[in-house]
Amino acid sequence: MTAALSISRLTKTYASGLQALKDVDLEIPRGEIFALLGPNGAGKTTLINIVCGIVTPSGGRVLADGYDVLRQYRAARRLIGLVPQELSTDMFETVRHTVQYSRELFGCRRDPALLERLLRDLSLWDKRNDRIMTLSGGMKRRVMIAKALAHEPRILFLDEPTAGVDVELRRDMWQLVRGLREREVTIVLTTHYIEEAEEMADRVGVINHGSLILVEEKRRLMKQLGRKELTLHLSEPLRAIPEALSDWRLTLSADGTEIQYRFDSVSEHSDIPALLRRIGELGIGFKDLNTRQSSLEEIFVGLVGRRAAASAERDVALSTEER
């Protein structure tokens, strides 16, 4: 089966010399929700802009549903919708006209029924004859989404779609994305809100300094890289961790009322039952316990941080060798 998006050896070097993308390979199957995470300037938007035809790549190849985005750009672009990061709209146009314009620009016939459904789904129907300049930021963001969906794309790029929007719109957006997934629309999402990726994505890609450093199924990623934390709320405060518990890496809270045990969920053998037995044998009572798994945000920060540290180490080693 043809992938919705197939990117191979994609590179982009801007005229300024900035290498925004370095040999990026990525395959996204149809109907998947893929979250692309990365710090500012990592290359997320450049990647999206190349796929959508806004930026010319320096090298590599991108296929959208099997169509080359450069050589078969008409067929490829018909399939792609983009909600850009910035609120870029024609302020003097009405909501209805601007969405209609987007549909016709993509070569589609007018479809008043579809337009109405789209505007109703996005709570824009009552505002259809209003000029965009009169709308709130959240409403403008909805207009951007309506424009991107006006030609019924099969692949939708959402570049920071909920940046600066209220909770209500964010929830509406998540609902909309789930609805699109039911219709087998492939969605590529970039976001700074990790909980958004955690909530919606099937797979997660992490990009940093133009390189795709990781692509993994979200659940597996959290399982593999997620840290777990066990907290015991003690009945009586302790002064120090007893020597008999030195087999486990435990920490005691400042007030001595909580013992914390951090462990990797897969790589480290936790043996929690043995720990609890030993605590019981030592006569340490606890009134409650809870476990917590690290969020995607913590995983992401950890990954990027580790890469940065490794890169810094390499630089130090190189400069030492040079000397």
């Binding site: 802009n49 806004i54 672009r77 983009l82 910035e86 870029s88 709209t89 987007s102 070569g107």
Partner: peptide
């Protein structure tokens, strides 16, 4: 205004 993105990403030559 930034709306050029739409023109460049549309299937228009």
């Amino acid at each position: 205004t930034g709306t050029i993105y739409e023109l460049l990403s549309a299937p228009v030559s």
